[in-house]
Design a protein around this nucleic acid. Structure first.
Length: 828
RNA sequence: GCCGCGGUAGCCCAACCUGGUAGAGGCGCUGCGUUCAGAACGCAGAGGUUGCGGGUUCGACUCCCGCCCGCGGUACCA
């Protein structure tokens, strides 16, 4: 063949087209009146120091394909990218090297941006933003003030995991066996003033408004996380005391089966109710538990532990004396931190009762008969009929619950109550590299003190004052030293000139806690619609033009936290009238993780990390993109196969060799396409379009491969066919497609070229081969027109020896003929 | 334990939604062509009791029931 022809060379084609797109601002999002819009969003990355890994381009390629496809269909597309750039690693790096986190962050962003650009994604880079930008922080703080003004941001004393050696507060996951995961330093549980967001006020809406969303199983995860349970709060009198012990139960119908009470080790009444003779043991037990993190408490305690306090509660109806125990399986942070124990009908209570020899009384019976619990090996938790329960006797469980609650409410002994597993969101971090919380407090100076930076003073944390909107953003102070101190107030407390200021002759102190990394990602999708607005977070026009997000793709590790937090903020903004949809993300897809070649999670320590830069260098961005889509279903977890990339590279090579020179062939413009190839072409146009819309990108690639193989086989490819192919390929391998498009005679980018259409009549074959079964077993095949009649079929198979061999001497019982599908002779 | 997803050729995966000839595509393997030889390329080919057991049906990878295995999430939330 003509050896003069250039080979497919992605290393020259790809930079050429990337430069062209950038220069011509091809992908700047513009809204045209009357056109449909699509807001196609990736979860923006945290720009880590190690750069992009092959997992990033998976979701990004999928959205890019959809974005490019939609543009070709005449849809206005918003497809932005930015950086979730606050975060611990940059701060940790600062502590170790003294490099300012802003510097590290800028450097990492530059690397990420270069890598993403090398993959040819069609982002509108003019909308790039970073959560660390002051212009962005300003509006993050503005939203915080909205929460604060609505009473949804409040301060509370909460126990945290404080590690004095590291000088930091640790997440539960970072504490193992009472020691820090990193370094093994002791960790103490310490109550600390924290900003908290009242997400529980939105619990029901967050659960219910999931219903209309096109989301995967993530919806169930969120519902479970929110964990609504309905029940009652009941007050138990304490023997010999004025106070009551309030408990929460979902089974008020089992009240008569309560044989003892259990309170959490952190219960406020514990100290005062424990009797002198039990005091020592109870307090020792409490101390042993309280120092543990929640994780350890729940993970390590398979067998129940606890102590009797010596105190008794009185049953609100029967007046029976119920011993009060303390045990760590009762959590201080859920419900009221106290329970009534009904061992016959609750697994945990049953276990505890057996461990400590407490009585088990049956009050719910499957058959209404009375049973002896002595031989029971487990609790009966199913619904049944109330027994040994006075006025409830004979009632089914649901009725008994309702009856008991009304009774309690009537007598003033308890109330109906809905309880959530979801807790309010601890929103402050004792860190430097985060958004300052835009709040300050009055400072009181005792006589003789004039300057809180030098003299003793009291900060009135109980009187928080919102920073005026006009003064936003509150910027981070410059620090030389990012090291934590032994003060849990965090590094900002050392920036005295920043922290303390005077106004109208009075001293005030700024909040020294910062926001968690989640804050910035809670609303970035809103800033993308109007990223340069200096008057507002975004304009109403921009909102109406682009919102809501039509497709949101990102990892399922964010299924609960990020996606719940963002929805929460959105709903608050909805209530403020700032946004006009109750939900921000219409359709959500989680891409599956890409494993290493050895089928294990990619990690440096396993030595199985694939670097996308190397793949791009070797085979080009188009090969990487197409391979990642071809690996398997987008949502599936799948292993990397280096040989697979080679296979895709061969496909692109073949496409190049088959199509790049079509125009130079004499007579290409008039060359006819044989009927079978024509049908395949139309089938492919149909399938690729449908597959993109359903995000079945693996099978779309496969369809393109089939078409390529066919075109490579026919003697001459017509120019129009080659042009159609380039358009079909372009969302997947945009650089190669643009290059082909140009070689086939175009002078401008194909980015807005109309997506090819197809003739439905050509997408079905009129002659099909059908299987012929006898009694359901395949015996032969026959080629017939799709619209063949039963008589045609009978004629066609009448003399088929393979069929006759199995029907000879038998009588036909049934003749099944599904046109285009199957023929089945049932004989006997 | 509970919830979710999955199990098809040596490997990655189609076909399952909507039952109808088990195979689209890629990798690997075998043979042939090409080559001094290899790589690349081209052509041809082999390879499966669809995790197991039962049910429904003329017909089950597909639908239903029960189990086994793998992965992810969650874990004493009263």
């Amino acid at each position: 063949m003509s050896t003069e022809r250039p080979k497919y060379d992605p290393s020259s084609i790809e930079p050429k087209w990337q430069a062209r797109w950038e220069q011509e601002k091809t992908f700047e999002a513009r809204r045209h009146p009357g056109r449909p819009k699509a807001y196609i969003l990736d979860m923006f990355p945290y720009p880590s120091g190690s750069g992009l890994h092959v997992g990033h381009p998976e979701g990004y390629t999928a959205t890019d394909i959809v974005a490019r496809y939609q543009r070709m269909r005449g849809v206005d597309v918003l497809h932005p990218m930015g950086w979730d750039s606050f975060g611990l690693p940059a701060e940790q790096h600062a502590i170790e090297t003294g490099t300012h986190p802003a510097q590290t962050t800028a450097k990492n962003i530059a690397t990420f941006k270069r890598q993403l650009k090398s993959l040819g994604f069609s982002y509108d880079w003019s909308r790039e933003l970073a959560t660390t930008d002051e212009a962005y922080v300003r509006w993050t703080q503005w939203i915080f003030l909205k929460l604060f003004q609505r009473g949804l941001a409040y301060q509370a004393e909460l126990p945290v995991n404080w590690c004095p050696a590291l000088g930091t507060v640790l997440a539960n996951e970072e504490v193992i066996d009472g020691k820090s995961e990193r370094g093994g330093h002791p960790v103490v549980r310490l109550p600390l003033r924290q900003w908290t967001l009242r997400i529980t006020a939105y619990a029901d809406r967050l659960a219910q408004e999931l219903q209309g969303l096109d989301w995967p199983e993530t919806k169930e995860k969120q519902v479970h996380w929110i964990g609504r349970s309905e029940g009652a709060e009941v007050d138990f009198a304490l023997e010999g005391r004025g106070e009551k012990l309030r408990i929460f139960t979902t089974r008020p119908d089992t009240l008569f089966g309560a044989t003892y009470m259990v309170i959490a080790p952190e219960h406020p009444l514990l100290e005062s109710l424990v009797t002198p003779e039990h005091r020592q043991k109870v307090l020792a037990y409490r101390d042993s538990v309280v120092s543990k993190s929640d994780m350890d408490r729940t993970a390590l305690t398979k067998t129940k532990t606890g102590e009797f306090t010596g105190a008794y509660a009185l049953h609100p109806i029967s007046g029976a004396r119920l011993p009060i125990w303390v045990a760590d399986f009762v959590l201080g942070s859920y419900g009221t931190g106290a329970i009534m124990s009904v061992p016959a009908h609750d697994e945990r209570d049953f276990e505890f009762a057996r461990a400590f020899g407490l009585p088990v009384v049956e009050v719910v019976s499957p058959d209404g008969q009375l049973h002896d619990t002595a031989s029971w090996t487990e609790a009966v938790t199913a619904d049944g009929v109330a027994v040994r329960s006075g006025f409830l006797d004979g009632q089914r469980t649901p009725d008994a619950k309702a009856t008991m609650i009304s009774h309690l409410e009537q007598k003033g002994l308890g109330t109906r109550r809905v309880q959530y597993r979801l807790r309010d969101w601890v929103f402050s971090r004792q860190r430097y590299w985060g958004e300052p919380i835009p709040v300050y407090f009055p400072v009181e100076l005792p006589a003789g003190s004039t300057d809180p930076r030098k003299h003793p003073h009291t900060v009135r944390y109980d009187q928080p004052i919102a920073v005026a909107e006009s003064e936003l953003p509150v910027r981070l102070p410059e620090l030389e030293d990012f090291k934590p101190s032994d003060d849990p107030a965090g590094p900002l407390s050392r920036a005295l000139d920043w922290r303390f200021f005077q106004k109208d002759g009075k001293w005030f102190a700024r909040e020294t806690n910062t926001m968690p990394q989640w804050a910035g990602s809670c609303w970035y999708y809103l800033r993308f619609i109007d990223p340069h607005n200096t008057q507002a977070a975004f304009s109403k026009e921009a909102y109406d033009a682009w919102m809501p997000v039509d497709l949101y793709v990102g990892g399922s590790e964010h299924a609960v936290l990020h996606l719940l937090y963002a929805r929460f903020w959105h709903k608050v903004l909805f209530d403020c009238g700032v946004v006009s949809h109750p939900e921000p993300f219409g359709k959500l897809v989680h891409q599956g993780m890409i494993l290493g070649e050895n089928n294990e999670k990619m990690s440096k320590s396993r030595g199985n990390v694939v670097n996308p830069d190397e793949v791009v260098q070797r085979h080009g961005a188009d090969s990487l993109r197409v391979y990642e889509m071809f690996m398997g279903p987008l949502e599936a977890v799948k292993p990397w196969q280096t040989q697979g990339v080679t296979g895709v590279r061969r496909f692109l090579d073949r496409a190049w060799n088959t199509l790049a020179f079509v125009r130079e062939e004499p007579g290409a413009a008039e060359a006819p396409l044989d009927e079978e190839s024509l049908r395949l072409l139309h089938k492919t146009v149909k399938k690729v379009g449908e597959d993109i819309e359903a995000l079945r990108l693996n099978t779309a690639v496969s369809a393109l491969m089939i078409l390529t193989n066919r075109l490579a086989d026919i003697p001459r490819v017509p120019l129009e066919t080659a042009r159609t192919f380039a358009l079909l390929l372009s969302p997947f391998a945009p650089h190669l497609a643009e290059e082909l498009w140009e070689r086939l005679g175009a002078t401008k980018s194909l980015a807005y070229e109309p997506w090819p259409s197809y003739d439905p009549a050509l997408t079905v074959d009129d002659v099909v081969e059908m299987g012929v079964q006898v009694n359901g077993k395949m015996r032969s095949k026959v080629k017939l027109r799709r619209d063949a009649t039963e008589a045609d079929v009978r004629a066609a198979i009448a003399n088929d020896p393979n069929v006759l061999a199995h029907t000879q001497g038998k009588t036909e019982k049934k003749f099944v003929y599904v046109p285009g599908r199957i023929i089945n002779l049932v004989v006997g």
